[in-house]
Design a protein around this nucleic acid. Structure first.
Lengths: 350, 350
DNA sequence: TATTGGCACTCGGTAGAATTGACTGCTAAC
DNA sequence: GTTAGCAGTCAATTCTACCGAGTGCCAATA
């Protein structure tokens, strides 16, 4: 293979000079609004720069050469590339949420009641309604939470239900179907022992199980292994997707709609996608930035949720690359902040 | 205005004579296959009737007059009306599931493991994959189930978690946030009393709560009222929707897709729709038969799930009115049967 | 009397040509 | 460096003609 020195001005992130930036911004804003390619004259007219369309044109060829703009075909206007959107998001927009919506979020969290899951679900609906995009709300798993209580309940001779309560307020059940018949007293005894064994441990803690061979010990062993047998990552992650019908509104082309819906169905995928973006320290992934091809026509906005500083999930918004970044990012941020506060300050009320 | 005697043969459900039935069937089958209006010559050629297209035509005008067929425009073929589909479903199709798929269902239920919720969710995916339609799986609520155990767990001074286990294997949690501070011992005592009070009752049973004013009694009262405060209908109903991306495949027109998706988002609506249809004793609702306008271009197939003869939910398939009724109905039926058996016979394994 | 072949008619869909118009890139002048 | 002007490109639109699938009707037929 020939070794070459490749100059990729595309990869070098330079500050654009003022005029180029203004032009890029005008193109992005206009294209987000109209979904049409934007021509030089429109830019010359709209933007607050006093140059002719010819000047705009020559700047545009430069912007195109540098990878910020693209042309669907010769005689059409320009549309932003992913890189163009990225520059726009990073440098050219200010994200303030309208006061009406600010209020909407506040009101929502002031009045919302119910279990964590319900709150997350409703939050997801709220986000989607506010923005007209599909929303994703991820509640973190309880890998680090400690066990407050476990209980073994007898369903019938061969069926027992292991109910575990975690310090983060989550409750998990597991069925046990041992191949021996345990008496109710044995089940109760096993339940007692499990409590003694597991309380205040987390799922990451290995515990010493009894090695005896009687029914009680067998039950205890089966319960512990069932409880610990879950996936190390993301078990207990909760995903709530709101406004999937928006997909049909904001994306064009049945095929795209189908693809996006199909991806939303695989919730684990969505979770890992959101997680990836958060791990990269991003708040927006535009086009193929997340490296996931089927969503290359999408942008995904994420905002972390923390409880007392500890990561506890995230909220996200999924739209086309030409989405309304400012509003959507502001909404995601406001909601994630309020959500964080909601859970941290849950004690205040009453 | 001239007074006229209007004859409405459309409302009279009569058996169609053999030839009309054959023609109707041919039109339905062809149109389901091609999504195109079907012409007289196609019918004359395809069906096993030895008449000319002219004869078919004259029969078709009769079928149209009687409301079984419709014409998009003058020079087009005929498409079935809802009534036409209904007749087809009731009289003209036999529903046997292909042996390959029969096996697929068997294999699935032979290997599926996990909690009820997981099974239902996977079932929903299975159904949707088998048929290419969106599936709905409804698990009945536990209104009639009795309580096996309740437990009050301390989260912190003002937060307690009420965890209830029902005889149907479901587990429900409720947060209690009393405005007084209860000591751990008091919480435990309340938990004990709740158990004594509630075990073997169902949510429909009213119980006698202590009238004392101490913390324990207050906790007990709050717990009982929280537990009983749920919606009388459909609380605890679980809905699993599989293959919503299929909506984009089988329906044409973005607007329709959006509408259907929007409806699927409102899960309670879907549940009541399914319930309605079951209550009417139907297994298919075609077009506007369910009286729900936004879904008037859809057909909804349902099949009840029972556990030991007791209604325990349903499975459903949602598609366009021109869906493949035979296959879809066979699939729904097979899955609902196997699902019923799965839960009834859960003891066998091991 | 039921069926049929034949015929005129309807009307959506398609293919092609012509036109439009929104762009661009280029260049010469300022 | 900026601009006006101009020639060129190409998608989108409109128009036209035409095709053909399909109908309804009717007179002839078995």
């Amino acid at each position: 293979m020939v070794r070459r020195v490749v100059r990729e001005p595309t990869n070098v992130v330079v500050e654009l000079d003022d005029r180029k930036a203004t032009i890029l911004k005008a193109v992005v804003v206009e294209h987000i609004d109209t979904a049409q390619p934007v021509g030089s004259s429109a830019v010359a007219a709209s933007a607050d720069l006093d140059v002719s369309s010819a000047t705009v044109r020559s700047e545009m060829v430069a912007l195109e050469r540098e990878g910020y703009l693209a042309q669907p075909h010769t005689s059409a206007g320009r549309i932003p590339t992913d890189k163009g959107y990225r520059y726009f998001v990073d440098h050219l927009q200010s994200g303030v949420l309208g006061s009406v919506q600010q209020k909407q979020v506040k009101d929502f969290f002031a009045s919302v009641r119910g279990e964590v899951e319900e709150v997350l679900e409703k939050t997801s609906t709220l986000l989607s309604q506010m923005t007209s995009y599909t929303s994703v709300v991820v509640g973190a798993g309880h890998a680090h939470a400690t066990i407050l209580s476990v209980q073994l309940v007898n369903l019938d001779a061969h069926h027992h239900l292991l109910v575990s309560v975690f310090s983060d307020g989550s409750v998990v059940k597991h069925s046990l179907t041992p191949n021996f018949e345990a008496k109710p007293e044995e089940v109760m005894e096993a339940s007692r022992q499990l409590n003694a064994l597991l309380i205040n441990t987390s799922l990451e803690t290995r515990v010493q199980v009894p090695s005896r061979r009687d029914n009680v010990a067998n039950l205890v062993r089966e319960a512990v292994s069932t409880l610990h047998a879950q996936q190390p990552v993301m078990e207990g992650e909760q995903v709530f997707i709101g406004g999937s019908s928006k997909v049909a509104e904001v994306f064009e082309g049945v095929e795209t709609v189908r693809k996006v819906l199909a991806i939303l169905e695989q919730e684990l995928l969505v979770v890992s996608l959101v997680q990836d973006i958060l791990d990269q320290g991003l708040s927006v992934a535009i086009g193929s930035e997340h490296g996931f091809e089927p969503l290359s026509t999408c942008a995904l906005i994420v905002a972390p949720v923390t409880i007392d500083g500890v990561p506890a999930g995230a909220v996200g918004l999924l739209g086309p690359t030409r989405m309304k970044y400012r509003e959507a990012m502001a909404a995601a941020e406001a909601v994630s902040k309020q959500l964080s506060r909601h859970f941290a300050g849950a004690d205040d009320r009453g």
